[in-house]
Design a protein around this nucleic acid. Structure first.
Length: 675
RNA sequence: GCCGCUGUAGCUCAGUGGUAGAGCGCACCAUUGGUAAUGGUGAGGUCGGGAGUUCGAUUCUCCCCAGCGGCACCA
């Protein structure tokens, strides 16, 4: 069909309400918007054409289903954010002419743009850049889409010193259309689409922070300087977002850990946690809970050594594949001579265990095992050390000494599916108990650095995926993210702020049991190597407690709260009665405190509320007279007067540790139900 | 590990080329007060560590360490 013919053909555009507008020939989104009304023309940002988002200026020459996109649409917000990134890049290059642009994608709540510059940007530069951005918005520069040839584009970007852009184009799929967006005197390679002009952006944006980021995300490449920004439809949304950040900061486990006196960290033991009595109470409760649950699913708990000979790690494959994350200790008596080296450097080496699996295999190997013994399930609250990079450490979420709720299941190949189903059932029940009903599953496949042949990996990945299918859980993939000895399932839970955390894992391992010589006698009387499933539900207690603290904003469920109740007399006249109530709580097994300090009740209520104590029992003359208590629950402005014994009994009931028998909560979307 | 920022009292933070200050917390005294701060008095810091410049450094310069925000890595 020739151009001329199509130009004379009428074009029918069907709008979302079903109505059709007919034009004499090809039209642009702008024309359509104007045809519908001046209000829409003003609000229009782009247009959906048969499911694709187009610039308003692009010519539509065929009958299409269309809808105009405004800033009210989700797609409109995405456009605003991406344009905001472009406007930021324009501002940066106006202010700092020798800076090269690289990539600038949208992210949750905003965008970033990575720049190459001799001197990295600092936070002090953000004010000037932001100011210039507002000027560019005021200039209301028209944004023009142009299609260039590949060679022209490469030549152009090379000629202006934009080597990264030239590299990006060079690496693009040869069939990919090269589009350039021009605004004012500035232009950028971009797939688009974009707003019709910079003025449409508005003023609800803010540059948030600067950071270093490697070119193409590879730590072997040079480091670029990244600027993060946030962008919204209007000032009100921006303000709400900033408020949300402030609220999230209040939940920070490092802040709450200090305020609630749970733990501390100090530089002499970086990456390892000093647990205080209150924090360790939470730890012990969580440990007790998961221990109970594991025992109910056929796990036998063991305890294995911290320091193991490097020979074992060589054999297991850790020495070759994991050594840079291990703490190595020479097995030698250090010299006490003043002028002699402390260590000779000649001693044999031991290593603090970074994982428990080789030690569990040693336990398995004691005595002869029969196929009738399988599956054997060992659990251990294994304290592991990993030499994590300094920059990775973060509160108690990312530490160097960690305690896993670890376990290894030794089984035959035909037991993998049943064990996987059981594990997923247990895991979803645990997450539900702990307040995290929603989680996602990813199948992580072979990494580049790995032990074992491709044939073994084919088998392992196949078995694990088959078993995963049998659980009925929905899942995605994490290519290349498997452990060095086998593929794994990653369980990512969502917290109250919608963030996701990888906690649980199930790893299928054909490699390490064989390397370490684990065998059992099969039905056929011959030796076979068992399959090993490495699994953890919480992941590590440190991280999981950190997640729980932030998820609950410190207001822990009663069973895990370090102090469950405080008894506080109004005046010292009722100290004695307060002590009676306190004794009742203690006798009932409640973690209670008695606060008979010479302070006003207002002061005490305020202080215990800040410390997130779930229940305050206030007792005055009235309560003492009729053996009652005035109970004020955390988060409530009101108090309830109850019979003292009943109040204690109610607290005992509420504070019962969950055991997996609770009803499935409504927020569970069903993905967690596997039983 | 890489980039940037920060490091002052237990906590949150102000401040200065002439050896430091606030609020909260803590101690003591007074106050006995019904559900988110009673008042007063006092103690407490070699200003992250080391070196340099200077008559003099917490302040300026350099190096190191740690924390924070990211990147990379990861439970």
């Amino acid at each position: 069909m020739s151009e001329q013919l199509s130009a004379n053909n009428p074009v029918n555009l069907r709008l979302p309400d079903g109505s059709v507008r007919t034009f004499d020939g090809p039209v642009t989104g702008t024309t359509l918007a104007a045809d519908i009304g001046p209000g829409l023309l003003k609000a229009a940002l782009a247009i959906h054409v048969n499911g694709e988002i187009w610039d308003l200026s692009r010519v539509i020459s065929e009958d299409s289903n269309v809808s105009i996109i405004t800033r009210k649409d989700e797609a409109g917000l995405d456009l605003l954010r991406h344009d905001c990134a472009h406007i930021m890049a324009e501002a940066v290059q106006e202010l700092f002419p020798k800076t090269q642009v690289t990539i600038g994608p949208n992210i949750d709540d905003g965008f970033f743009y990575d720049f190459a510059r001799d001197k990295p940007f600092t936070e002090d530069d953000l004010g000037a850049i932001e100011k210039r951005m507002h000027e560019i918005v005021k200039r209301d520069e028209e944004i023009i889409r142009e299609v260039w040839t590949r060679d022209d584009a490469i030549a152009h970007f090379k000629s202006i010193g934009e080597l990264y852009k030239a590299e990006i184009i060079t690496d693009l799929d040869p069939d990919q259309e090269i589009t350039i967006y021009r605004q004012g005197n500035w232009l950028d390679l971009c797939r688009g689409p974009h707003l019709p002009s910079t003025g449409k952006l508005g003023d609800a944006f803010k540059l948030m922070k600067v950071a270093g980021a490697y070119w193409r995300g590879d730590s072997n490449n040079e480091m670029l300087t990244r600027i993060y920004g946030t962008c919204w439809r209007d000032k009100k949304e921006l303000k709400a977002y900033l408020h949300r950040l402030e609220e999230a900061a209040k939940r920070d486990h490092r802040k709450l850990g200090r305020e609630m006196d749970l733990f501390h960290l100090q530089e002499e033991a970086q990456g390892s946690v000093f647990w205080h009595p209150k924090g360790y109470t939470m730890w012990l409760q969580l440990e007790k809970y998961i221990r109970n649950r594991l025992a109910g699913w056929g796990y036998d708990e063991i305890k294995t050594p911290q320091l193991l000979d490097s020979k074992l790690w060589e054999q297991s494959g850790h020495w070759a594949k994991f050594r840079e994350n291990m703490f190595i200790v020479p097995d030698e008596i250090p010299s006490t001579e003043d002028d002699a080296p402390i260590l000779s450097g000649k001693a044999k080496l031991m290593a603090l265990k970074p994982m428990n699996c080789p030690a569990h295999i040693q336990v398995f190997k004691q005595g002869t095992k029969s196929y009738r013994d399988l599956p054997i399930r060992f659990s251990e609250f294994g304290c592991c050390h990993r030499n994590e990079p300094h920059g990775a450490l973060h509160g108690i979420m990312r530490v160097r000494q960690m305690t896993q709720d670890d376990g290894h299941v030794f089984c035959s190949e035909d037991q993998i599916t049943a064990e996987t189903i059981d594990f997923c059932t247990l895991l979803s029940s645990v997450y539900r108990d702990l307040g995290f009903p929603d989680f996602k599953v990813l199948l992580a496949t072979r990494p580049e650095t790995r032990a074992g042949s491709d044939e073994v990996w084919d088998r392992a990945e196949g078995s694990l995926e088959d078993a995963l299918k049998a659980t009925g859980l929905e899942y995605g993939y994490a290519p290349g993210e498997g452990a060095f000895y086998g593929p794994k399932l990653e369980f990512h839970l969502s917290d109250a702020l919608g963030r996701t955390w990888q906690c649980g894992t199930l790893q299928l391992d054909y490699v390490v049991p064989e390397r370490l010589g684990a065998t059992y006698i099969g039905e056929d009387g011959a030796k076979h190597t068992p399959v090993m499933l490495h699994r953890a539900i919480l992941g590590t207690l440190e991280r999981f407690l950190g997640i729980m603290i932030e998820h609950y904003a410190g207001r822990m469920p009663l069973w895990i709260a370090p102090v469950q109740a405080v008894v506080s007399p109004i005046t010292s006249d009722t100290d004695e009665y307060a002590r009676e109530v306190y004794d009742k709580l203690i006798a009932a097994g409640i973690r209670a405190e008695l606060d008979i300090r010479n302070e006003k009740i207002n002061y005490k209520v305020r202080e215990h509320s800040h410390k997130k104590v779930p229940a305050i029992f206030v007792v005055g003359g009235r309560e003492a007279e009729n053996a009652s208590v005035s109970v004020r629950r955390l988060g409530s402005k009101h108090s309830t007067v109850l019979d003292a014994d009943e109040a204690v009994a109610a607290l005992v009931e509420e504070g019962r540790m969950p055991d997996g028998t609770a009803e499935v909560s409504e927020s569970n979307d069903g993905t967690a139900a596997t039983a």
